Amino acid sequence: MLDGHWTEVSWEDLEDIICLQGTVPVYRQVKTVEGPGKSHSVARVCQPDFAKKHENRTAETSYLGKLFIGKPLPEGTRFTLIVNETPAADLYEFACERGRTRDPVSAAVRQKVIDKLGGLKLQDERDVDWCVDRLDVLVEARTSDQVEDEARRRLTPMVRTYLGQEPLVAEVEEVLKRLISVHIGRKAAELRSVRHTVDDFRAVFEDAVQRVTGQRHDGGLERLMTLQEKLRPAGVLAEEADRQHEAMLAFRRYQRSSLGAERQRLADLSDKIYAICQVTAMQRRGGLIGAGEPAYRETVLAVCNLPEVVSNEVPLSQALAVLSDITARCQNRYEDAS
C-alpha cells in the first residue's frame, strides 16, 4: 500500500482478501494443501464443497465459485487464487508472477473451467466467461516461517527509511509483532470486516516504529520512559537511569550524524553488544543467571570486557550508551527469564 500498489485492503474472512486500486477491485483467495502428492487442479477448484452438508452442493460452493459470486464486478476487476504449491498442468496455465500479467490460457482449459462453473449467477450482468478471463493463479510455496521472513524483508527498508539509519534486527521484529498482533490481528478478529486505507496503514506503521524505537518521523526523539522502566528491576536508581537515558540520546544523535567508516564502526559495535545481550538472555532462560540485577551485572561486565573497551579503542561511556540504546529497544531485557 505504501508503495502505491493498493489504495485499500480488506477481507471477508480468513481466506478472502479484497485489494482496491482506486475503485477497481482485485479479489484474492488463499488455498493451501498439506502433505505430498496433492495439488490443485481445474477439477478441484471447480468442485462443489461436499463438506457443507447443509448447503446446496453446486458450483457456487467451489473455490472459484466463492471467488466469483456475490461481489461487484466493475470493469478492470481481477481474481487471484493463491496456492502454496505448483498446481496441476491445466490450472497452471493461469499462473503468473506477482505484479505481472499472465499469458493467455488455451481454449480447451478455458472452456473446461466455464463448463464446470455453468449456472453461476453473477453481479453486474457478468458471466462466467468474463470472470475466467480475469483469473490469475499465484503460486507461493511457503511455510509460515517463510511468510514471516518475507514480511521482515519487506518491512526492513520501510523502517530504514523512517529512521534514516539501519534498524536493529530486534527493532524490525518488534515492529512486525506490533503491526500484526496489535493493529491487524485485533481488527481481523472483529465481527465486521475492517478496511485499511493507505493513510490508515501509514499511521499504524509510524505508530509501531515510534513506539519500538522512540524516534518520530520528523527525526526527533521521544523520551523513552521504557528505558527507565526496564532498568528498575535491575536495581538501577532513577537518577542513574536518567543519566543513562541522556547518554543514549546523545549516542543516537551522534550515530545519525556519522558517515562512512565511523557509521560502520558504530554498527559493528552495536552488533557485538547486541550479541552479548542475546547470550545473557539465553543464560537467563536456562536458569544460569537470575533475572534483574544479576542479568544486568553480567551484561555490563561483558560489555566492559570487550577487547575494544579494554584497549580504550572504544570509550567505555560509548559502549554503555550503546547498551542503553539496545536495552530501550528490546522487551523484558532484565525483568524476567521469558
Results as ranks from 00 to 15, higher is better:
Glu140Tyr: 02
Glu140Asp: 03
Glu140Trp: 04
Glu140Ser: 05
Ala141Gln: 11
Ala141Arg: 11
Ala141Leu: 04
Ala141Pro: 12
Ala141Phe: 00
Ala141Asn: 13
Arg142Thr: 15
Arg142Asp: 03
Arg142Gly: 03
Arg142His: 12
Arg142Ile: 14
Thr143Arg: 07
Thr143Asn: 07
Thr143Pro: 13
Thr143Leu: 06
Ser144Thr: 14
Ser144Glu: 15
Ser144Pro: 05
Asp145Asn: 14
Asp145Ile: 09
Gln146Cys: 06
Gln146Leu: 08
Gln146Gly: 09
Val147Met: 08
Val147Cys: 13
Val147Arg: 13
Val147Glu: 09
Val147His: 15
Glu148His: 02
Glu148Lys: 11
Asp149Thr: 01
Asp149Ala: 15
Asp149His: 04
Glu150Val: 12
Glu150Ile: 08
Ala151Asp: 06
Ala151Arg: 12
Ala151Cys: 14
Ala151Ser: 06
Arg152Gln: 11
Arg152Asp: 08
Arg152Ile: 07
Arg152Glu: 11
Arg152His: 13
Arg152Met: 05
Arg153Thr: 12
Arg153Ser: 08
Arg153Glu: 09
Arg153Ala: 13
Arg154Ile: 02
Arg154Ala: 09
Arg154Gly: 07
Leu155Val: 02
Leu155Glu: 05
Leu155Ser: 05
Leu155Ala: 08
Thr156Ile: 03
Thr156Tyr: 00
Thr156Pro: 00
Thr156Met: 02
Pro157Ile: 07
Pro157Phe: 15
Pro157Lys: 08
Met158Asn: 01
Met158Cys: 01
Met158Ile: 06
Val159Phe: 12
Val159Gly: 12
Val159Ile: 07
Arg160Tyr: 10
Arg160Phe: 09
Thr161Phe: 14
Tyr162Trp: 03
Tyr162Val: 02
Tyr162Met: 03
Leu163Lys: 03
Leu163Pro: 01
Leu163Val: 01
Leu163Ser: 05
Gly164Asn: 05
Gly164Leu: 04
Gln165Leu: 12
Gln165Ala: 10
Gln165Tyr: 02
Gln165Trp: 01
Glu166Met: 07
Glu166Ser: 08
Glu166Cys: 01
Pro167Leu: 11
Pro167Ser: 11
Pro167Val: 02
Leu168Ala: 09
Leu168Asp: 11
Leu168Ser: 04
Leu168Asn: 05
Leu168Ile: 01
Val169Ile: 06
Ala170Asn: 06
Ala170Arg: 14
Ala170Gln: 13
Glu171Arg: 04
Glu171Ile: 01
